[in-house]
Every structure is written in C-alpha cells, then in structure tokens.
Design a protein around this nucleic acid. Structure first.
Lengths: 202, 202
DNA sequence: ACATTTCTGTACCGCTCGGTATGGAAGGAA
DNA sequence: TTCCTTCCATACCGAGCGGTACAGAAATGT
C-alpha cells in the first residue's frame, strides 16, 4: 500500500544538512529551535513530527555527519600501511576541519561543549562515538602488527590514541580560526612523531 | 580613611574558586546563575555588586584560572632546553587535566563550548588567550634557536603550534574520561615527535 | 545614640527556551 | 466528489534564563 495522506513538504536529508550547520556552529544547547526551524525552512510541529524532539534531531544529524562528513576517516583505514593510514587521516582531517563551505572545526567537539547537567547524555554520546573511531584505528594498527607492517613491540592502542588526540587538537585549533596551512604544518610534525614511535628501529 | 559601611560577608577569591568549578564543569552558558550563586554561597545581588555581571565574573574566573591552575605552563618555559620545556609542558599538562580534585579537562576548552551567537565574544576571548600562550611558547623556542639549542632550520612557531594542538587534544580526551596514564602514553609519543622535528640532524 | 553607608534577602521583571494543542489546508484513495 | 489521513501554521504553555528594585539588616564615623 502506498503512502496515503498529504505528503511531506520538505526533504528530510536536506533539512538534516541545514540543521547540521546550525548545530556545528553553535553546539547542541546553543542551537535554539527558532534558529533550527528557520534554517531548515519548516515549523516546530513539523520538526517534532519528523524527528521526535531536539535530541532526536541531533542524533540523526550526528549519524548523517558520520556518514557524509567523516567518510575520509573510514577511507583512511583502507591505506596499505600503518604509516599511510596515519598520513591520510591527519591530512584529510585538516582539510575537513577547514573547508571554506563548512563551519570551522568538528561537529562532535563543537556540539559537545554546552552540556548543562541534564544534557550530559549528549556529551557522553559524542565522546563515546569519538572513542569508537579511535578503537577502529587501534584495530587497524593491530592488524598492521599481525601483518608485519608494524614491529611487534609497538602498542597499537597508544598509537591510535595519539592520532586521535592530535585530530581533536586540530579541531579545537581550527574552531579558533587557525588556517589550513598552519594546521598542515602541525600534522606533518605529528606524522613525524608517529613514524618515530611506530618504527623505532629505523 | 578606612572602609565604611557593612563589610562584605564572603571572601572574593574563595567565591571565584567555587565559580570556577561550576564554569569548568558546565561551560559558560551551561552554568546558570542559580547554580553559580548556590556554589558560591551568595545571592544574585551580591554577585552583581562584586563582579558586575555573568560575563565579568567569568573573565575574573579565567584570570584566576590562568594565575593558579596554569602556573605549570609558565614554569615550563623556565626549563633550560627546548626539549625540557616541551617535556615539562606535556607532562604537567596531563597531570593538570586529570587532577582528581578538579573537573576533568580544561576550563578554557570546556567553557568555550556553549557559544550562542551573542556569546561569541566569550569563545573568541578564550581562543585568543590560548593563542597567547602558544605565542609565548613560540618565543621561547625562538630564543632556543638564538642560543644554539635548536638548529636554525626549525620553525619555532610550528613547534609551538604542534605542542599546543596536542595539549588541547589531551584536554578533550581528558574531558571524555580518558585516564591519566593513557594520556601520559600519548604525551610520550608527542615528545618523541617533538624531538624528531626539533632536532632533525640526530 | 544617631546618621550614613554598604551589603543581603526576597520577590519580581521581560525574555527566550523546548515543547504542544488545535484548526484548517492539502493531497491520495475510493 | 467524497472521505480520510497526514501535514502545516498560529498561538500558546510552564519553566528557567540573566538581571534588577526595594526594603531591611549590619557595621562604621561622629
């Protein structure tokens, strides 16, 4: 049976993209329903019918963000060597954080900032999703150890944590307005560090 | 002439310390006047008489934070060599971010998160103060180049930026609940990277 | 003792927040 | 055309926000 009744007057994914930009710029609490509905071009009842409530909307936005805006992180894992993985991750991350057609920084970090007691669940959710990415990276480096790409004495978890830390630091810096080329300098130093830590024999 | 009239019933610095903890935990917007006055043990009119308004209170809190909680960063600059500066900064920073008697993370980053349009001035203020610390670090490394401690081909600004990035990444990680020893692992890798970048000849 | 100055407590202000009730408009199915 | 389901628009809700008016309490100077 096909859909009966009046069809929805807006595209869901497009509305999510508009909402993403608002959350990205102002954080979870900083984004008001008035600003969200204004950017999405819909009214509050439509928002609540389509996405449940503000938290439901935000979670769907984050899911879409992970799908679309963080594809580079998944792609980086496909590089053949651990060093190539680190290089691709660091470089593409800097590019993603400083796209001129996007707010500076990272939704996961900008959005988590405003957390007033009750909204601690939001901050926990974002922190957990970030650590999930770190785990995937650690698993990739563990595989590199098994494959003989990395020497057996290195700690894949520590390497992944270091890269994750640098990534988050770049997000904070980017949000403060630091330019792309300046972040690339920092990423190159981090890559140097990664190489020194991952291939101590050299 | 001595102070006339009824004397203030609370200690200013002690009240600032209480307020600091609230801002540190919830950010600027996330900290409500109700929670602030409750933690400080005073009423709203007393707060406004003593500190002007919420923003004035926050700025005084940040000043005290820089004085007291970030003394380690200034002390690190006194180390004799650039590598010792980096080592002290990275290690003491991890310790400061994970003190059991303090909220996890860093006031400057936790506090800047909630920035709803009008309060963008707060976020800018915090970002600028962070970049000021980075400049001091760059100046210290420039001195190291002049002294022959660092080779002339290294870029002091890039080194300082890298350390600042790692520091901020650790703050984000610490706020997510990552343990002190795990951050120390990451700091050691960062120190390795710093050494590789700062002394390329070795 | 009195006047003066300052701080404190209560109660309140306008405003915006996230969230919702309700009536009508719009489109598909018969 | 009629019915029925779904969506859209206005207007509103209670609660909490940052900030303040005002009166009473406490301490000093004379």
């Amino acid at each position: 049976m096909t859909q009966t009744g009046r069809p929805r007057g807006f595209d869901t994914d497009e509305a999510l993209d508009r909402a993403m930009e608002v959350f990205w710029r102002h954080g979870y609490e900083g984004a008001s329903l008035t600003e969200l509905t204004g950017a999405m071009g819909i009214n509050k009842p439509s928002l609540y019918a389509a996405f449940g409530n503000k938290e439901g909307l935000f979670r769907k936005v984050v899911a879409r963000y992970a799908d679309v805006e963080m594809a580079y992180a998944r792609d980086a894992l496909d590089q053949p060597t651990a060093r190539d993985v680190a290089a691709a991750l660091l470089r593409d991350n800097v590019v993603a954080l400083t796209r001129p057609d996007r707010p500076a920084g990272c939704l996961s970090i900008q959005g988590a900032t405003a957390c007033g007691t009750d909204n601690a669940a939001i901050a926990d959710f974002l922190a957990a999703s970030r650590l999930t990415g770190e785990s995937a990276l650690a698993a990739r480096f563990a595989r590199a150890v098994e494959e003989g790409d990395l020497p057996p004495e290195v700690d894949p978890t520590a390497l992944a944590r270091f890269l994750s830390v640098v990534t988050e630091g770049h997000a904070v810096h980017a949000a403060a307005g630091v330019r792309r080329d300046q972040l690339h300098q920092s990423a190159e130093i981090a890559l140097l560090a990664f190489t020194a830590a991952a291939y101590p024999a050299r």
